[in-house]
Design a protein around this nucleic acid. Structure first.
Length: 501
RNA sequence: CGGGGUGUAGCGCAGUCUGGCUAGCGCACCUGGUUUGGGACCAGGGGGUCGAAGGUUCGAAUCCUUUCACCCCGACCA
């Protein structure tokens, strides 16, 4: 038996560890379609919880859901120059609309389309087109729409959840009468994302602005939340874009203002994807598999009946059923606790590890011995040892236990980020920090570095060979005079740097 | 699209250099039994057009030609 449920460990080979966790927790697997994944029930359950929480947040901030087509006329994508350039290289294109029997018994495409359709890589253009029709007057503004959808970006290299050719996400699109209002919206949605990440995913994030090079194609500015994974690499977890009037001018999203004149709307867009499941895995999971923050766990508690002898079976199962109902009556996070019984005919040890690997926050084992004492045997995913506890006591403590696990995960992740964040004054230290000791098989190294910098080509040139990128310029910083670590120029701008996914 | 690699059972592989019995092993799966408060053990069993097409040969997983697919390293990325 291996010392850890997952091999290799994070230390030994982080990328491989990640893949093994996804597999062991039964979250998703590769599909016959290149680059596309199949999300399995346990993984999809996490996504459903993410959707539920975010959807509530979007509605609470005045947004409504709608749905737009999967296909976008190619001409739409051509309207915004930077936007085309950004996405052109990774678009799937539909050119035909039927199949005919071919000479070799196969099927060949027939019925070519007059105008090819692009499978949406994002929906700015088609939503903008509809916005133009819906908006006539300043009284129609603001218009605040969200869509839950799948999008396709023909990525060359893929990893489950982190980068797949097709992924699920939500994309918010809003139009406003003034620049200020649009900027406020961009910032508001970033705050929503940060709230979601920190309070539900238990994942601390940096809120910041992207540099020119990292900006969304066509955006005036891109705000983002950045998070540090356990291998100290950065993951962009969500973005909120201020699109200025770029898209409204390209798509004629115009309105008559209160003064009777004609104005272009100011638009925003913001998105968050199934990549967050990857972020969740890489933030919390350990060498025994997935660790789930209770607020997003598909199930909170699993009851494993210990059925050794046939004559005990009825007693044990009845006790478990009663226990299940009692637990389901407990509330956590404004919802009933999600509990289920796993009575599969399986060895105790195997069953225990099955649930450990899937990250169920609380495991209960109930056998004749516990029933005699009216107790339960409790195993917490965040603690190595299981303990026997009186049933009533467990029921009373359950919300506290779940809250403790949730908070503990956040604290640990924050501690991890803080202890791997540095502020350097010399480029030498910076370079050393990001250079692995073992070049052939780089060990886990680096982290975040905070320093003054000027967003220019020279800076990018220095960063390139190090494979380091500016992650963001943190928001709300007091301007302090300093020297750019890369160019030596005077500046008040400070940024956070790191290697990224 | 540049450089490298791999295709053999559901998964992971050996066998290929040096052609030769009925193509093997581990895990998983099925059956029976012994077990069961910590990832069991014993016995038996099912499952393969050896990526595809063509060629050489008495004989091809193995040699030759062509082709397809996938993986890794680069450019791009929620």
């Amino acid at each position: 038996m291996a010392k850890t449920a997952i091999t290799p460990t994070r230390e030994e080979d982080y990328p491989e560890w990640y893949q093994q966790v996804v597999k062991a927790a039964d979250l998703a697997e590769n599909s016959p379609v290149r680059g596309c994944m199949v999300i399995k029930p346990w993984g999809y359950g996490i996504w459903e919880n993410m959707q539920r929480v975010l959807d509530r947040m979007f509605k609470d901030t005045g947004h409504e859901n709608a749905y737009f087509p999967l296909f976008i006329p190619k001409s739409f994508l051509e309207k915004e120059a930077e936007h085309v350039e950004g996405f052109a290289k990774e678009c799937a294109i539909v050119t035909h609309h039927r199949l005919e029997p071919g000479p070799d018994g196969g099927l060949i495409p027939a019925g070519p389309l007059d105008e090819p359709l692009v499978v949406r890589p994002t929906s700015e253009t088609i939503i903008g087109h509809m916005f133009a029709k819906w908006i006539d007057s300043y009284r129609d503004l603001p218009l605040k729409i969200n869509q839950w959808a799948n999008v396709v970006r023909w990525e060359m290299r893929v990893r489950l959840f982190l980068r797949t050719a097709e992924f699920l996400w939500q994309e918010g699109h809003t139009a406003h009468a003034t620049k200020e209002e649009a900027l406020e919206e961009t910032r508001l949605m970033l705050d929503v994302y940060a709230d979601f990440a920190e309070n539900f995913m238990a994942m601390p994030v940096l809120k910041g602005e992207k540099t020119k090079g990292e900006r969304f194609p066509g955006a005036e500015s891109t705000l983002c939340i950045e998070s540090m994974m356990q291998d100290r690499k950065a993951l962009q977890a969500g973005t909120s874009h201020f699109l200025g009037q770029n898209f409204s001018k390209a798509q004629e999203i115009k309105f008559q203002n209160a003064e009777g004149g004609e104005s272009f709307a100011w638009t925003t867009s913001w998105g968050l994807s199934t990549r967050m499941i990857g972020a969740l895995i890489m933030t919390h999971s350990d060498d025994d598999g997935l660790v789930l923050p209770p607020r997003l766990a598909p199930k909170h508690v699993v009851i494993c009946p210990v059925l050794r002898k046939d004559e005990d079976r009825t007693t044990v199962m009845e006790y478990c059923e009663k226990l299940k109902q009692e637990i389901a009556a407990v509330r956590y996070d404004d919802r009933p606790v999600e509990v289920f019984i796993d009575d599969r005919d399986m060895r105790g040890g195997e069953k225990k590890w099955y649930h450990v690997k899937r990250g169920v926050p609380v495991r209960l084992e109930v056998g004749p011995r516990d029933i005699k004492n009216d107790g339960v045997f409790v195993g917490r995913r965040d603690q190595p040892k299981s303990t026997g506890v009186p049933r009533a006591e467990f029921i009373a403590q359950l919300p506290t236990i779940l809250a403790e696990i949730q908070q503990g995960l956040f604290d640990r992740a924050l501690q991890m980020r803080e202890s791997n964040t540095r502020a350097f004054d010399s480029l030498g230290e910076f370079k050393q920090f990001f250079t692995p000791k073992n070049q052939d098989r780089p060990e886990i190294h680096g982290g975040f570095v905070e320093c003054h910098f000027v967003d220019c080509d020279e800076t990018e040139e220095i960063l390139k060979p190090l494979k380091v990128t500016p992650r963001c310029i943190p928001l709300d910083q007091e301007p302090v005079e300093g020297t750019c670590l890369f160019t030596g120029q005077k500046t008040t701008c400070r940024g956070v740097f790191g290697k990224s996914y």
